[in-house]
């Protein structure tokens, strides 16, 4: 919501405000997943497993629009825009650099909102498969979504045959972002 908080706020208050912003974003990803055709036909256990490993990656795609690569600024939920230099001083350097790089690459592809939504669906079903019980069903779902994304993009931009493969190359980028940053520690104290 806001990169800096006043010294008068307790760690509990900071935690609560973080949670209040972050929890709805995660729930929106859950609702989004449930709207993917075929997702709810997977077993509930497999739906949960895919969401657990893919939600951070979907959020990274959603947060891309908050990163302005040209101005090197990030817009927070409080509506304020902060320069990278200010944020770097707060100690979030490596995640910010990785996010700027990723949002620049994804932004350069100029996807339409429906293409972006289909891409996020592919991201979610391409998540780490450890713990998935019906691998075949997940693969079928993924193949259908990739086919739909490819046909949408190729139909709209028949002259740009490189766009779809470029987009698929963003999947390993997201996997790396997830592996490097989702294990960041959140610590809070309760009396």
């Amino acid at each position: 919501a806001c990169p800096v908080s006043g010294a008068e706020r307790s760690s509990q208050e900071i935690w609560e405000s973080f949670s209040q912003c972050f929890t709805p974003a995660v729930k929106e990803v859950v609702e989004f997943a449930k709207g993917i055709p075929g997702f709810q036909e997977l077993s509930q256990q497999d739906q949960v497993m895919l969401l657990k490993s893919g939600t951070f990656q979907v959020l990274m795609v959603r947060f891309c629009t908050l990163f302005n690569a040209e101005d090197r600024t990030v817009t927070f939920l409080n509506g304020k825009t902060y320069p990278l230099s200010t944020l770097r001083a707060l100690g979030m350097g490596s995640l910010l650099d990785a996010m700027f790089e990723f949002s620049e690459k994804l932004g350069s592809l100029g996807l339409e909102p429906d293409e972006m939504a289909l891409f996020m669906a592919v991201v979610l079903v391409s998540a780490d498969r450890s713990g998935i019980s019906d691998m075949w069903a997940v693969e079928q779902l993924q193949e259908g979504l990739i086919r739909a994304l490819r046909s949408l993009i190729n139909r709209r931009r028949p002259d740009d045959s490189a766009l779809f493969p470029k987009l698929l190359l963003r999947l390993p980028d997201l996997r790396t972002l997830n592996n490097l940053h989702s294990e960041k520690l959140l610590a809070f104290r309760i009396d």
Partner: peptide, 25 residues
Amino acid sequence: HKTHRVMTLADHISHIITQDFARNQ
């Protein structure tokens, strides 16, 4: 007396998802 709890962002996401599914069952 203060208890110090530590979790990762991934743990937090996981917790929200588990709660969401448990509520809708």
